[in-house]
């Protein structure tokens, strides 16, 4: 499965793969969202989770006022997917599980 597959899901606004230090490897997002910024945020939060909870692989789903952000450590790097709050979060999670 490719990163581009995520953005085909309804109400998914962007997705990407980012290295541990926040550099984008691959990414796609709608015009409103900047994959570089999202990648940096994803790396920052994942690193924080790993350091704080002392775990090697981090996985998180973050709900904000308007969006849901998925973060997942994978062999290739950190995968992130951002979608609208009313997106099918369960479906995105399943796809993400398959991807990672």
């Amino acid at each position: 499965m490719k990163i581009g597959e995520f953005t085909k899901i309804q109400k998914v606004l962007g997705a990407g793969l980012v290295s541990e230090d926040g550099f984008i490897i691959e990414g796609q997002a709608t015009f409103e969202y900047d994959t570089d910024k999202l990648g940096a945020i994803a790396a920052r939060v994942v690193n924080r989770i790993k350091n704080s909870l002392e775990i090697t692989k981090a996985s998180a789903i973050i709900y904000t006022k308007d969006n849901v952000l998925f973060l997942r450590d994978s062999a290739d790097g950190i995968v992130f997917v951002i979608c609208q709050k009313d997106a099918n979060v369960g479906l995105v999670k399943i796809r993400l599980d398959k991807f990672a």
Binding site: K37, L38, L53, A60, I61, I62, Y63, T64, K65, N67
Partner: peptide, 11 residues
């Protein structure tokens, strides 16, 4: 991102 703060999360 100017997208509001955290409401809940699953780790």
């Amino acid at each position: 991102l100017k997208r509001g703060g955290l409401e809940r999360c699953i780790i």
